[in-house]
């Protein structure tokens, strides 16, 4: 199936991909991952796909609140007399 050789560094990069992409990975870990990505095109692609799936989802879900509903929310707001 796959010709990809999964080295220790690759496995480490995969474990970090979520936090890396979400920018919650500690800086020293980011440095280690960056070093690996510089020499491993395969992991670069995996990271690209990780970002890609998110951008596709965000694009797909980027629909604004319908105008009629927005007006209804405003009405609910105005009708609510609780102080």
């Amino acid at each position: 199936m796959s010709a990809h050789v999964r080295s220790e560094q690759c496995l480490h990069a995969q474990r970090c991909v979520q936090e890396y992409v979400d920018r919650t990975l500690p800086a020293e870990q980011v440095a280690i991952v960056d070093q690996h990505l510089a020499v491993c095109p395969c992991c670069v692609k995996c990271y690209g796909l990780e970002v890609g799936v998110r951008s596709v989802m965000r694009k797909a879900c980027d629909e604004p609140c319908p105008d009629a509903l927005r007006a209804e929310l405003r009405r609910i707001c105005d009708d609510c007399d609780c102080e």
Binding site: M1, S2, H4, R6, C46
Partner: peptide
């Protein structure tokens, strides 16, 4: 984790 990568044939 490599499913997508593998599926797309590298």
């Amino acid at each position: 984790d490599y499913y997508l990568y593998d599926r797309l044939g590298g």
